[in-house]
Structures are given as structure tokens and as C-alpha cells.
């Protein structure tokens, strides 16, 4: 465990010594504050739009941070050859994969905390109400979803050599699942066999990232989701992340590394 956390610590330090996170945070903050300062026809409902835009920016920024940070981890280790002194220590390749996963996931979590704190301040100051539990639930579900995304990108970084191609493919895949995933079963019903079975198979095979998107519940001030459902969603994310990490380990464990 010590090795895994040591590796994770390096990933977190790298993220916060680069400028990506700060740029995204400043961009999100500036856009939200600018839009929040505009008053449309003195309509008090405008606060909903501010919340909607802020949450959308948080989702996009978190995805960019998760995918960009994870996609460069293993390729950068190989390109800068830092993998060699690392693997010359008593470290297994499985520990490298796990360390990178934990590091990227924790880094995303820290970034999300900052984003949600900002959202809380903006939303609370406009609405004069502080539904902290709802925000916590949204934060937790989004972070769980990012666990699947990080594991997926880590697997991709072993399959694809170039971080840019991996990041692009993963970004399209994740956006595709978020936008179309929930409709695949209905699409399947309209197809003839055997396409119907294929689309159905795909519906059950893909990780349903859209389940973790509870932005509407915050925007329209809905009730909390049951904590049991939250736990099930976390378990689902954990299983998917574990399967993807297992795949990454299978590919990485015997990969020859040449100086």
C-alpha cells in the first residue's frame, strides 16, 4: 500500500504543479460569475440557469482534468524514461497501475472539491439556501463516475501509444456514453435481429456513466437520492473500475520496456 500511495502522491504533485487545473478553475469561475452577474428581466429563476451553467462547466472541466491527467501518466513515464528507475525498485507493474489510478482519482477528487466549494458559494449566496447533503451526493456520484473514466483512460494509455489519440478516443467514448447511453435500449427495440441483440449487448456492456449525472436534481431542488441507491451506484463504479484496471494490468505486465 505504501508503494501505491507513494506513486499516487507523485501524480497529485504533478497535477498541482502544472497549470491545467488552475486554468480550468479560473475559466469556470469567470464564466459562472459573468453569467451570474447578468440579470434577465429581473427574473429570480435566473439562478437556475447560473446553477445549470456552473454545473455543466464543472462536469466538462472535471472530465478534461481526469482524461488529460490520466492519459499522459504511463506514456510520459515511458517517454521521459522515469519508468526505468522506478521498475528497478521492488515495484510490480500492478502497483504502478494501481498507484497511477489512485493518484489520478484522488487528484480529480481534490479538483472536484474546489469546484463544488465554488459552486456552493455561488449557488448559496444567490439562493440563500445551503442544501449541503445534495451537493455532497452530487460530488460523490461524480467522483465515482470519474473512477470509471480514469480506469478506462489508463487502459487506453497501454493500448494507444500517443496520449493525444488516447485522450481524444476516451473523450468521445465518455461523451457518447453520457449523451446516448441511456437511449441504447430504446434504439435496440427499433432494430431488426441480429442488430437488436448487438445493440442490447452494447447497452449492457458499457458503463452507464449517465447514472451519475444528478445535476438536474440540484438545479430543480429535488429531494436527496436514497443512500442505498448511492451505495449501489458506487459499487457499480467500483466493479467497472476494477475490471478496467485488471485489463490494463493484463496488457502491461508482460510488455517489454527497452531503454
Amino acid at each position: 500500500m505504501n508503494t501505491i500511495f507513494a506513486l499516487a502522491n507523485v501524480v497529485i504533485k504533478e497535477l498541482y504543479r502544472r497549470k491545467d487545473f488552475y486554468v480550468l478553475f479560473v475559466l469556470t469561475a469567470v464564466l459562472t460569475l459573468l453569467l451570474g452577474s447578468v440579470s434577465f428581466f429581473q427574473d429570480i429563476k435566473v439562478v437556475r440557469y447560473v446553477k445549470e451553467i456552473a454545473l455543466l462547466l464543472i462536469w466538462i472541466s472535471a472530465l478534461v482534468i481526469a482524461i488529460a491527467t490520466t492519459a499522459r501518466q504511463l506514456p510520459a513515464e515511458r517517454e521521459h524514461r522515469t519508468i526505468f528507475p522506478l521498475l528497478a525498485k521492488p515495484v510490480t507493474r500492478g502497483q504502478v497501475i494501481l498507484g497511477k489510478f489512485v493518484g489520478c482519482w484522488l487528484a480529480c477528487g481534490l479538483a472536484l472539491v474546489v469546484f463544488y466549494l465554488f459552486f456552493g458559494v455561488v449557488s448559496g449566496s444567490r439562493e440563500h439556501s445551503w442544501p449541503v447533503l445534495n451537493w455532497l451526493q452530487a460530488f460523490w456520484l461524480q467522483w465515482s463516475m470519474l473512477g470509471i473514466v480514469v480506469a478506462l483512460v489508463l487502459l487506453g494509455s497501454i493500448v494507444f501509444t500517443a496520449p493525444s489519440s488516447n485522450a481524444t478516443i476516451c473523450f468521445i467514448l465518455v461523451l457518447g456514453i453520457l449523451l446516448l447511453g441511456r437511449h441504447l435500449n430504446q434504439v435496440a427495440l427499433q432494430q431488426p435481429e441480429p442488430l437488436r441483440s448487438v445493440v442490447y449487448g452494447l447497452y449492457f456492456f458499457i458503463p452507464h456513466l449517465e447514472w451519475y449525472d444528478v445535476r438536474d436534481l440540484i438545479i430543480y431542488d429535488h429531494q436527496l437520492i436514497g443512500w442505498g441507491d448511492c451505495a449501489l451506484a458506487s459499487l457499480y463504479a467500483g466493479i467497472y473500475a476494477a475490471l478496467l484496471l485488471f485489463g490494463a494490468w493484463l496488457l502491461f505486465r508482460r510488455k517489454p520496456l527497452h531503454l
Partner: peptide, 19 residues
């Protein structure tokens, strides 16, 4: 081949933790 975003002390601490 070292993590250039770390200081020498941090790098050595990282490897010490690995051991």
C-alpha cells in the same frame, strides 16, 4: 530519468517510501 517537477529531496523521499 527523474520526475523533473519534484525537488531532489522529494524524489529521494518518494524512492525511500517505495523501499
Amino acid at each position: 530519468y527523474y520526475y523533473k517537477f519534484l525537488t531532489a529531496e522529494e524524489l529521494l523521499r518518494f524512492y525511500a517510501r517505495i523501499f
